[in-house]
Design a protein around this nucleic acid. Structure first.
Length: 131
DNA sequence: GCCAACGTTGGC
DNA sequence: GCCAACGTTGGC
């Protein structure tokens, strides 16, 4: 799940502990939000900064419900809870260099703000980030 | 700041 | 239903 840290960062989430992941206005991203289940884990990716990187981890604590920031029907948000901030974020550049991650959506549809991660990719990423 | 990639809109 | 025009995202 991507956010520009100037707008909302992993540190902001740490301060709030629980936050609504709102403002998504893309159907594919919305569908990915809808597929999330309570207790699912997600990475927090900092975009549009140098360097772009996976900065932390969070947990889905409330499944998709109508986005509180719009009156337009159909848009959804989830609630997330802070889990951890990575002292050494995994940069986009590093991700690109790991063969096991070369199919990541991040590398092929970088604009999608809520992306799926395969079980294998998750295992690879946590193996690097949590060592 | 630039620009490629992508999504959306709207005329036909 | 096609596609040109436009707006946005995000890496560089």
């Amino acid at each position: 799940m991507k956010s520009e840290p100037d707008v909302f960062s992993i540190e902001d989430l740490r301060r709030k502990d629980v936050a609504g992941w709102d403002g998504v206005r893309n159907y594919q991203a919305r569908n990915n939000l809808r597929a999330m289940r309570k207790a699912d884990l997600a990475f927090f990716y900092h975009s549009s900064v140098k360097p772009p990187a996976i900065a932390g981890m969070m947990e889905i604590v409330r499944e998709a419900y109508p986005d509180t920031t719009t009156k337009e029907p159909g848009w959804l948000q989830v609630d997330v809870r802070f889990r951890k901030v990575f002292l050494k974020p995994l940069t986009l550049d590093e991700i690109k260099q790991i063969p096991a991650l070369n199919k990541m959506v991040l590398l092929h549809n970088s604009r999608l703000s809520v992306q799926p991660i395969s079980a294998g990719e998750w295992a690879t990423l946590t193996g690097i980030l949590e060592k």
